[in-house]
């Protein structure tokens, strides 16, 4: 149980895909103009991650080493297409705004990375815990980034306008430069926070 918890928490902070490992950046920057888009993208990616992690962990002992990578690609692409079609059917508006970034989940390095580094070497249950943690870490990052961009760039939060007047949104934040600017600041904050936390941890002697 303790091991599962560790697998789960790992993806949220110490190995946060975007802020720490610098992977999966493309969709994060591209669609983080509103929180709704961010959450949608995060959930879609998490679904694919869970599906591919579970499937790969289940078949890990059957698939020969030599064709591991192509099999992983097929498994991931299958889950991505299922997500793509389901979103077109049930969330057409979101599907349209996310556009090519839904099929591009295939090449999101987070998914291939977890398949190769974790799911292909661990039990299905641990693979699920890992997928959930990574997915939640990804969703949280997206919510923070898109929240900041929507608030500063459009003056709204979850599409609702602010309760007070007098705040003039800085349009640049929802334009492409704002995405790069926001992620730069966010990584800086994350790095600095994380350093503090690690130092504190050492003092108390906890591992």
């Amino acid at each position: 149980m303790k091991q599962l918890w560790k697998d789960f928490v790992n993806g949220i902070i110490s190995e946060n895909a975007v802020l720490k490992l610098m992977i999966g950046l493309c969709p994060v920057l591209a669609i983080s103009t509103t929180v709704v888009n961010g959450v949608g993208m995060g959930l879609a990616t998490t679904f694919v991650l869970l599906g591919s992690n579970l499937t790969i962990a289940l078949i890990r002992n059957i698939v020969p080493k030599e064709i591991r990578i192509p099999v992983f690609i097929i498994v991931i692409a299958t889950f991505v297409t299922i997500t793509d079609l389901s979103m077109a059917a049930y969330f057409p508006a979101l599907h349209k705004t996310l556009g090519i970034f839904i099929p591009l989940i295939v090449v999101n390095c987070i998914i291939m990375g977890r398949a190769e580094a974790f799911a292909s070497r661990n039990t299905p249950v641990r693979a699920i815990a890992d997928g959930l943690g990574m997915g939640i870490g990804f969703i949280l990052t997206l919510i923070l980034l898109s929240g900041a961009r929507e608030l500063l760039g459009n003056g709204t939060i979850f599409g609702a306008s602010l309760p007070f007047k007098g705040f003039e949104p800085a349009l640049i934040m929802i334009l492409p430069p704002g995405a790069f600017f926001a992620i730069g600041i966010m990584i800086a904050i994350f790095n600095n926070l994380f350093k503090l936390k690690r130092d504190g941890g050492h003092k108390h002697g906890s591992a």
Binding site: M22, F180, F181, G184, I187, A188, N191
Partner: peptide
């Protein structure tokens, strides 16, 4: 020091993106 490493890379990119706009 706050921006050292990847953050400054993204800030530079933001400026490049402004130019490309």
């Amino acid at each position: 020091k706050f921006l050292d490493g990847y953050p400054i890379v993204f800030i530079l990119t933001a400026i490049l993106a402004v130019a490309f706009m």
